[in-house]
Design a protein around this nucleic acid. Sequence first.
DNA 1: TATATTATTGACCAATTGGTCAATATGTGA
DNA 2: TCACATATTGACCAATTGGTCAATAATATA
Lengths: 190, 190
Amino acid sequence: MARPREFDEDSVIEAIKDVFWRNGYAGTSYADLIAASGLHKGSLYAAFGDKRALYLRALQSYDAHEVAGAVVLLSGGDGAQTTGRKRIKALLNAVIDAVVIDNDRRGCLLCNASVDQAPHNKSVEGIVSNGLKRLQSAFEAALASEKKGAALKEAASLCNAAYFGMRVMAKSGAPISMMKQARNGVLKSI
Amino acid sequence: MARPREFDEDSVIEAIKDVFWRNGYAGTSYADLIAASGLHKGSLYAAFGDKRALYLRALQSYDAHEVAGAVVLLSGGDGAQTTGRKRIKALLNAVIDAVVIDNDRRGCLLCNASVDQAPHNKSVEGIVSNGLKRLQSAFEAALASEKKGAALKEAASLCNAAYFGMRVMAKSGAPISMMKQARNGVLKSI
DNA sequence: TATATTATTGACCAATTGGTCAATATGTGA
DNA sequence: TCACATATTGACCAATTGGTCAATAATATA
């Protein structure tokens, strides 16, 4: 017994996530969010709250889709019969392909948020460090058949750091050759 | 035959660099820069120009001091008689120590600028990708006695990516153990 | 069909933004 | 000492910022 929403909540969050992904928190104005969502200011506020709340929603969406997707890819949860090494290779190739094929230099929103907002906001830090830990576990899962104990953890953290570093390279305008070398370096070291 | 400056240009740029380092470009207001520099608005403008120009100056200063320092450390230009491996270890330890000892979560300004401004500003992209290349060369110099050709480039790019990744971890609130594992992973792989 | 309940709209707000500028101060060289 | 060139100061500006709210619209149920 009330007027129904005229928009789909998830698609609005998708559109808003994209803006924060490109421009960061402070680099995005409420006017940008209005333009991207197609909603009016009051509706956006009524539905989601203030800018910070929207940012958190966007980050949670990234966590639930993109990060979770990477975790599935790495840990073999998609049922594909491949080795952990090949799954890591696939993830790093996807990072390179985003730049080469799609000309997508947004990088990784988790990584962007680490740099941008994690030091200033506890909620962001929480989401980001949780995502980092899940990626870490996923790299460990991918490597578990080849390494154990400290060596496993070290290899997984190396992958994790290199993954983040490559995401930064993507945004920095680094040559593709450097990213490919980094990928090859990772694959040779594990 | 004119009134002399009452401030030291370099120390003003240092103070301003610190603000951008912590808060990023869009996260810093001119009021923040005024507070940090101790100058009045008009003086800041007369001496350095607009916000973008100040950001570029800060980034150049970071490049000339911090990046150049890391390059010297890595390539052994300080004359210290150590192996390349130990120099890489020293750099990665410094990244960890900044967090552990100084509680410094500013990360690397080059890395922050990659995420924050490189995709939006050609000058920033130029400085950042140049810095990245110099770090790459310095890692190569550190590893040159152990590896050659493609293997050398791959190991250096891996170090470079892991270095950036650890800088992101530092900002993200990742546990120190993860950063230490990443460092150990790098040192075992080279 | 009447009503309760929620959604939409966009005008409105105070505060802050980056940026300008004219008045004033100050040191240096002639 | 005095004029010139530059530095300092802070008032001022238009535009934008994030955010509020009252008026209006649209539905589901009774």
